[in-house]
Design a protein around this nucleic acid. Structure first.
Lengths: 225, 225
DNA sequence: CAAGGCTGGATTGTTGACAATCCAGCCTTG
DNA sequence: CAAGGCTGGATTGTCAACAATCCAGCCTTG
């Protein structure tokens, strides 16, 4: 098995720069390239087996997404992030995901809602088994939020949250190895949000989602003096 | 005077790709390159006097900002936008600028607030002179919103709105040659928002800003069946 | 005459080489 | 011995040529 040329073969459709973009983004978000790492273009080009041209295109895109910091004529490094940045992001999440919840309550299909309710049930069962570990809950939490965002049926909003914001959130989670330390409460909040969506109460869904994210932010603020 | 090499000389600091990025973005937003225009790389490279390398980096960044649509192996064209897209964007603006107004009420310095109040006075005077024309008001409207966004003191929020959203809004305005057709009402709404900020009432500022943008959206929806 | 395949031209994707810029470390100098 | 300038090496920025892909229009064929 040739180390990593395998996955490259799978996604043969897109262009080289696109694949490098995806792989680099994964390596950054998942922590293979820790924050602050200096990224030499020649070195990276060799690592991914491409020339510097496509690599630079990928770098420019990741720079737009705030995953890389670049200084002209000096170099680019993996964005290293302060807790205050994460708090800023949570303010944005509060606004955007609140709107997403409102629109989801208005626009989700009945099937979508049923499927979401079923997802919650699975989470509650997992919760019974392993009380506070909440490892799966962490990714499950993302699943839950992803579904509601998609349910807004607002392409602009979806692209902003999934494409621009959530990569940063996930990177922070890995970086600070943030374990959701209030899983039962979060789960209860999820349940109330779903109830609001089920009754097609957009205003209530928005209110509850904003509280939900606001509390997560307060939790972060408390743990990062 | 050499046509446009002038402005290029002014901003000599940044890299070539950065300058091409700015110029191309202006040409798109201001309408020099109308929506749907096919952008040949060779042709563009000649037009801006650069090679295709930096040009492609600029294109990738503009693609991230939704100003260009690219199809691999086929080409890139200026994003051509439907009214439904603009409505989606206004939902996002409602959420984000609502939050910005809340944070501005909490975080703006007293000097910022005073300066904002003064800006409003200028707009009201202009309004007295030319009743409904509202040409300056249109750009003045942007000024007003820019100030409040900056006043949030939330770098993430500012970059999102100024860097990603507002270019699209401005492009739409030029494309549809949208003239704000309710300037007095808009101005009155601006005044009430400022009053909320002056009294440091974040909740009220957010509520009023959301209504303000929501009404603009309804106005668009009414005029685009 | 319509439908489908094919070919030539043009455009995009990629590459490796060349030029400009920066910086660490040495050397000079007060 | 500290401060400041300089140089060599390395890295980034830019370019022009080469390869891969696509598509419009022609030609063949039923």
């Amino acid at each position: 098995m040739s180390d990593s040329a395998q996955d490259t073969a799978l996604q043969d459709s897109r262009t080289l720069a696109d694949r490098v973009f995806s792989r680099l983004q994964d390596d950054i978000v998942l922590g293979a390239l820790p924050p602050g790492t200096k990224l030499g273009e020649t070195e990276l080009a060799a690592r991914y087996g491409v020339s510097r041209g496509p690599l630079r295109e990928a770098i420019r895109r990741l720079e737009s997404r705030k995953l890389l910091e670049r200084v002209p004529h000096v170099g680019t490094r993996v964005a290293s992030l302060k807790a205050s940045d994460l708090i800023e992001i949570y303010r944005v999440r509060e606004a955007l995901e609140g709107m997403a919840a409102r629109l989801a309550a208005e626009n989700m299909t009945d099937d979508d809602v049923a499927s979401l309710r079923e997802l919650l049930s699975r989470h509650e069962q997992q919760q019974d088994l392993k009380e506070d570990t909440a490892y799966f809950q962490r990714e499950g939490d993302l699943d839950f939020h992803y579904r509601i965002i998609q349910g807004s049926h607002n392409r602009t909003l979806i692209d902003l949250l999934i494409g621009e914001i959530y990569h940063l959130v996930r990177m922070y989670r890995y970086q600070f190895s943030m374990t959701a330390n209030r899983p039962q409460k979060a789960l209860a909040e999820h349940r109330r949000i779903i109830e609001a969506i089920e009754s097609r109460d957009g205003e209530m869904a928005e209110l509850l989602m904003r509280r939900h994210i606001s509390r997560a932010r307060e939790n972060i603020e408390a743990n990062n003096p």
